[in-house]
Each structure stands twice: as structure tokens, then as C-alpha cells.
Design a protein around this nucleic acid. Structure first.
Length: 571
RNA sequence: UGCCGGAUCGUCUAAUGGUAGGACUACGCCCUUUGGAGGCGUCUGUAGAGGUUCGAAUCCUCUUCCGGCAACCA
């Protein structure tokens, strides 16, 4: 949780980058609109965990407030008790804090305003702008018309103010069952903007609310609650995503009829990430049907999952900055997110050696009972991180992938009769390949060149490859989890014919049990991050790792030009 | 077919009538005791057609394509 103290890789999210929203705000300030005040808000519904798309919105709203010396509220739009839960409230609060943002004493809930909202509705009724409709769901749907056909007027549309008031009070008092009546705004049933065709304001729900308990049995709909909540909080710029563009005239209508403070709504394109699904409904489905191990499964695009996987808050903030803000909707390449965390961890994380798929080697000309301590640099990008000593002896493990019996011509690592450098140690030569009865390679016999010890005067001899290793006797065991993208198509959520679950990547998780790590890793703290040299960045899993059974998550691989050559050769 | 929005390198994003630039990706070279990092370089773009203008990604007209809207969800 100390991410926020770490060195920022680049400018923080409050800085420079211009976008169309900032131009609007600049203009507003110039005109002294709202007395030059800037007040934004992040308004999640507590019906799921926050994902990377929310992170963009959070960084935008809190970032804008910071840039303009304004304020940003956290407000839960909790108007639908059937779908909402305190578990989600808690996770959302935790995630935003972790991202590094502070709403100070301005934590609000739309449910804080239920009484006020009710009074606003009464005013609308009194002014002849709202009515109680006793039609069924189906009838209301039928009367709404279609985008190309006007709707028709409800038979209850001309009820008197007195009758509407009485009915609405009775609705509130619990006299009616769910669905018997609704309160609707009286606007226009033939307007081409469907949102304006007498939208529903209240529905009857005899449901327990996570904050108001059983006080209410009528609940405001989002469209009725949202704009007024912003108004009540004195929000100056209500930033939301593109799909609410059609709602803006409706919010304007409410604010106008109520004669209250009028925030300015500005819509921007939500974040889409390739190979990723962002719908909370679909993410819930993955969780409920156990396709993943909870909301924080490191393959999920949720903030809690990225945190558990090992992403830093600053890398996500930097990513949010890099994706930009515009009205055109598009898809961000997952590679940009990966770039953001690599960029940071390259500078900040210590290097260690770990062998994921061990192959034993015996250095036949190295003394049997000798162990040397060799010096290894902790982070070549950061001199202050110092160095450490690692044990070296006759029997070692190297990566199975670093040996090829019949090497490809561009394979620079170990193969029979060839030499390779062991990182921070000696140059070795493969003399003999030992196999079992079935022909599997079980061990390599090598010799080392004592003149080539790392750092010594004679160590200058060049070999084509350098590989990592650990001491067979002194190394420790760990479990390492390798993650790949959860879906194997770029846009799993947008196929019209197929269900998104059909695109789940069956190889998105690989669990490696007998990995060998250099001994210094024994007491690594939960959540700490390392670069496993030549492999990638890894993080001690906060859910399953213990001192007895270390579990590491792969955050992201290193860029790997050999992997590219291999891939190209296969295709 | 109605309304609202949108269209600039492969992907995001700048240029607000005056040299189409940056980032990511890809590719190449250099460097390298991480095939990492780093350095240098290359490729690729204004949806189309007209018009206004000395000059248009930008202004005007038409066309095309894409997204959103018909939950008692948010």
C-alpha cells in the first residue's frame, strides 16, 4: 500500500495534458462561471467492483479538481437497493484510496438526498409537471413508442394535482404493492429523444436499503436522482460517459423546472481495453460462475485484481493519463497498460534470479563441497539499491528453455558443446546431456572456466548468451502463477452472435509448482515486487502466499525478442 | 427509417485557417554479463466528393461509415 510514496515515473495526473474538457473549464473560469469554482465528483453505483475503466474516470475527476484547485466528491448513486451492497461500497472506497485520491470529508450517497428528492418530486407534481401512472410495465413500454414512432399518452396523464399528490403520498406510505404505480414526469410523448417521453421518477420497491434500511418503499430512478444530487452538492462540471448524452436534455429539464443550481454535464468516451471486458454485469457473471477466483483474480480488469497482480497505483494513474480524453470512442491497446507498469518497475524494482522450470546442471570440474558467494547488482537502473551476495556451487538449476539439444541458428543459449555465461558467475560449457530411459533430458554435465569469474580481470571473454540460474542446494521453492489475457480475441464483448464466455482463453492461468528462487527471497513481504531476471516482473500474492508456501504472481513479462523470433519461425 | 454524437498513422492522442506532431505497437541498426533497459532510425494517417481561401485536418455543402437511445438498471 506504499505505492503512492514511490517515485512517479512521469508527470502525475494533475498535470499538463490538455483535452477538450479542460478547454471548457478554462473558458468557464475565464468567464467567472460558478465564481471560478471547479467541483467534480465520481459517482459509482455500489453494485460491483471498480475496474480499469472507472480508474480513468476517477483520475479524470480527481485530477481535474487538483489541477484547478477545486474539489472532487465521492458519491455513491445507490438508488437501486436490489442490486447494491455494502461489500461494494467498501471495495470502492478502498480502491479509490489505493489509487491515491482523497475526497476529504465529502463522502456522500444519493440516498442521503432521498428526502430532498421526494420534496422535489412533490414540487413537480404541484406545478403540474409530474403524475402518478397506474399502468403496468407492459403498458408503459407499449405506450413509449419507438425511436421512429411517437409514443401515446397514458390514460392517467391528466390526473389532478390533488389526486397525484394523494397517490404519491400513499405510495410513499407503503399502501401499494411493487409495480402498482409509478411517478412520471409529464414532458412529451412524441419527442424523438426517447429519454424525454415521460420518464419514470419513482417506482415502488418494498426492499431493504443498505443505508436507509426500511425507511423507504419508493426509490428514485437514476435519471431522477443523479442530476439533482450533483446540483445539491454544488457540482460545477458533471463529467460522464458518452451514453448519457441523450440524458442531458432531461437533466436540464429537471433542473430548470426545479430552479436549482445547474451543473454542466460533459460527456467523454469511456475506456475500452483490447482483449478485455468492461461490463460490470459480465464481470459479475465471471465471478458468480467461477470462471475466475473472485473479483480480485489477477486476470480480471478490476482495480483490486490489478493491485493483487502487482500493478502499482502510479502505473495505473500514468496509464490513465496516456490514454487521453476525447469524445471518439475507441479501444486502447493492452500493450499500453503493460508498457505503463514495465516503465515504472524497470526503474524501481530489484532484480533477482528465479528458475521457473528447473533443469539441473552439474559443473563437473567444480569442487564438490565448495560454495562461493558472488556479488549481484540489485538494480542497474538505481545505484542506490546496492548489491547482494548469492551462493554458487557445483550443482545449479537453469531454465529448461535456456537449453536446446538441437539449437535454432539464432538460439544464443546453452546447447551441447557450446558456451554460455551464467549471470554474475562463470562461463560454462555443456559437455554431456543426461537422459532417462524414455529420452527426457534430466541433467546436464558442464565444465566451467575459472578464469571467467564475473568482475575479475580475465572475465572479458565474450560469449553470445547470458542466462540466469540458482544454486541447487541453497535455492528455495515457490509457486509461481503465470497470467495471460483472459480472452483470446481483441473484442470479446462485441460479438453479436457469440457469448463473451466463448472467448475465454483456456491458457490464461498457468500454475508452476516447483520453481527455484535465490535464497534471499525467503522472507519477502506480501505485495512486494521483483524483476525475475530475463523473465518479467513478479509480485508476492497477497491472498495465498505464506512463508511456508511462497506464491508469486507474474505482473507482466519482460519484452522478449527471442520469443518474437520463435513465434515468427512457427508461423 | 427518427434523434443525439463521432470520424487524423495499426492503436490512442495533438495541431483551434499557416511545416500533420507525440506516445504505444511493429521493423531495423547500435549497445549490452538480463535476447531486459537504453540510444538512434524507419514504416504507416487527415473517410469521400465538391466549395470558400494566397493557404483547409480545421470553415461551408453533400455523401459514406461507426457508436448511443425504445430497463419500474445505472
Amino acid at each position: 500500500m506504499d505505492d503512492n510514496k514511490k517515485t512517479e515515473v512521469s508527470a502525475d495526473s494533475s498535470s499538463s495534458n490538455k483535452n477538450f474538457i479542460r478547454e471548457i473549464i478554462d473558458e468557464d473560469i475565464k468567464n467567472n462561471k460558478n465564481d471560478g469554482r471547479v467541483h467534480t465528483r465520481f459517482p459509482p453505483e455500489p453494485n460491483g467492483y471498480l475496474h480499469i475503466g472507472h480508474a480513468k474516470s476517477i483520475c479524470l475527476n480527481f485530477g481535474l479538481a487538483k489541477t484547478y484547485n477545486g474539489k472532487c466528491n465521492l458519491r455513491f448513486d445507490d438508488t437501486n437497493p436490489a442490486k447494491e451492497d455494502v461489500e461494494y461500497v467498501d471495495s470502492i472506497i478502498n480502491d479509490i484510496k489505493w489509487l491515491g485520491f482523497d475526497w476529504e470529508d465529502r463522502l456522500f450517497f444519493a440516498s442521503d438526498y432521498f428526502e430532498q428528492l421526494y420534496e422535489y418530486a412533490v414540487k413537480l407534481i404541484k406545478d403540474g409537471h409530474a403524475y402518478v401512472d397506474s399502468s403496468s410495465i407492459e403498458e408503459i413500454k407499449e405506450m413509449r413508442g419507438t425511436p421512429t414512432q411517437p409514443g401515446t399518452l397514458s390514460p392517467y396523464r391528466e390526473r389532478s394535482v390533488e389526486e397525484n399528490l394523494k397517490l404519491f403520498e400513499e405510495m410513499k406510505a407503503g399502501k401499494y404493492k411493487d409495480g402498482e404505480h409509478v411517478l412520471r414526469a409529464k414532458i412529451d410523448m412524441s419527442t424523438p429523444n426517447m429519454k424525454l417521453r415521460d420518464p419514470l421518477l419513482y417506482r415502488i420497491r418494498h426492499e431493504h436499503h443498505h443505508r436507509t434500511g426500511d425507511t423507504w418503499c419508493i426509490y428514485p430512478l437514476y435519471d431522477w436522482a443523479h442530476g439533482q444530487s450533483d446540483s445539491i452538492e454544488g457540482i460545477t462540471h458533471s463529467i460522464c460517459t458518452l451514453e448519457f448524452e441523450n440524458h442531458r436534455p432531461l437533466y436540464d429539464w429537471f433542473l430548470d423546472k426545479l430552479g436549482i443550481h445547474h451543473p454542466q454535464q460533459i460527456e467523454f468516451a469511456r475506456l475500452n481495453l483490447s482483449y478485455t471486458i468492461m461490463s460490470k454485469r459480465k464481470l459479475l457473471e465471471l465471478v458468480e460462475n467461477k470462471f475466475v477466483d473472485g473479483w480480485d483474480d489477477p486476470r480480471m480488469p478490476t482495480i483490486s485484481a490489478y493491485r493483487r497482480r502487482g500493478y502499482t497505483a502510479s502505473s495505473i494513474r500514468n496509464f490513465s493519463e496516456k490514454v487521453g480524453v476525447a469524445k471518439r470512442d475507441g479501444v486502447i491497446d493492452l500493450a499500453l497498460l503493460e508498457h505503463s507498469i514495465r516503465e515504472e518497475l524497470n526503474k524501481s524494482s530489484n532484480r533477482v534470479m528465479a528458475v521457473l522450470r528447473p533443469l539441473k546442471i552439474v559443473i563437473t570440474n567444480y569442487p564438490e563441497n565448495k560454495t562461493e558467494l558472488l556479488t549481484a547488482v540489485n538494480n542497474p537502473e538505481d545505484e542506490s539499491s546496492g548489491s547482494r551476495e548469492i551462493p554458487f556451487s557445483r550443482e545449479l538449476y537453469i531454465e529448461q528453455h535456456d537449453f536446446q539439444e538441437n539449437p535454432h541458428r539464432k538460439f544464443f543459449r546453452l546447447s551441447p558443446g557450446r558456451e554460455v555465461r551464467l549471470r554474475y558467475a562463470y562461463i560454462i560449457k555443456c559437455e554431456e546431456v543426461i537422459k532417462d530411459e524414455t529420452g527426457n533430458i534430466v541433467e546436464l554435465h558442464c565444465t566451467y572456466d575459472p578464469e571467467t569469474k564475473s568482475g575479475s580481470a580475465q572475465s572479458q571473454r565474450k560469449v553470445k548468451g547470458t542466462i540466469h540460474w540458482v544454486d541447487a542446494d541453497k535455492s528455495i521453492d515457490a509457486e509461481v502463477r503465470l497470467y495471460d489475457r483472459l480472452f483470446n480475441v481483441p473484442a470479446p464483448g462485441s460479438d453479436k452472435d457469440k457469448d463473451f464466455k466463448d472467448f475465454i482463453n483456456p491458457d490464461s492461468l498457468e500454475i508452476l509448482k516447483n520453481c527455484k528462487l535465490e535464497p534471499g527471497l525467503q522472507n519477502s513481504q506480501s505485495g512486494s515486487r521483483f524483476q525475475f531476471e530475463r523473465l518479467g516482473y513478479f509480485c508476492v500474492d497477497s491472498k495465498y502466499s505464506t512463508n511456508e508456501n511462497l506464491v508469486f504472481n507474474r505482473i507482466v513479462t519482460l519484452r522478449d525478442s527471442w520469443a518474437k523470433i520463435e513465434k515468427r519461425n512457427k508461423s
